[in-house]
Structure formats: C-alpha cells, structure tokens
Design a protein around this nucleic acid. Structure first.
Length: 111
DNA sequence: GCCATGGCTAGTA
DNA sequence: GCCATGGCTAGTA
C-alpha cells in the first residue's frame, strides 16, 4: 500500500456518519487533485480486515456511482438511508449532506 | 481497453 | 451526452 492509498483511506475514514463526499474531493484532500478515478479504483482494493465507510463516497453530482439497480447501488442506498442520509433516485442532496466546513477543514489539515 | 469520475455543451420544453 | 484523464490489466507477440 503506497502513501497515497493510505491517505485516501484515512480521508474516507474521516467522513462522519450522515455525511458524504465525492471521489474528486477525496483525491484533492489526500493530496492529488484530479485523481478521482484513482480513488474509485482504490475502493475496490481495500485490504482484508479493513473496514471503510465506502458508501459515503459519491459522484461530484451527488449520484451513486454504481449502475442503477445493481447490487452495489442498492446496498449503498440502504446503508446511507440507515444513517439518515436522504437518497432519492440514487442521488443525495450535497447541499445538506456534504461535509460541513469544520470537518472539511480538519480533513484538509490531515496531510 | 476499461472504469465505483468530472466538467461542459447542445438541445428540448 | 460526449470527451478528457489517469492508472491498471488482459491479451498478444
């Protein structure tokens, strides 16, 4: 696991329950702006035994990245709703559930 | 090539 | 929708 990978996981771990962040935002906060797709790939490479709140990560539009109706799509929807996040038509209103300023500042300061 | 992305535009209502 | 991007992987030679 390289340093960027560890940073990405650390940033995702810092997203509090009931909040979400985009792939691009995570990449930027982990120190590599513009690497949103890399974050998506790393999500599929989480080491065994590591628990990650992967379902709090969405597209920049607030949409769930999995194809609508897929297993991953339903699971992500379910987990988000379970912690009070509103999901309608596979989309979360970022204005209400995105990171608040204090948390975001703390995450930027992590590295 | 492929993709768990993102940004910007054309075309409809 | 479409195209640009970045990084990894399958498949050929």
């Amino acid at each position: 696991m390289n340093e960027f990978q560890e940073r990405v996981y650390a940033v995702i771990l810092a997203i509090p329950p009931g909040r979400v962040a985009s792939y691009g935002a995570i990449a930027a906060r982990a120190g590599l702006p513009g690497r949103a797709r890399l974050v998506g790939r790393l999500m599929g490479e989480v080491p065994d035994g590591m628990t990650l709140p992967w379902f709090r990560v969405l597209r920049a539009s607030g949409q769930i990245a999995f194809p609508a109706g897929s297993r991953g799509f339903r699971e992500q929807s379910r987990l988000l709703k379970a912690e009070g996040v509103e999901v309608r038509n596979g989309r979360v209103p970022l204005s209400r559930f995105g990171l608040d300023a204090d948390i975001d500042r703390a995450i930027w300061g992590m590295f």
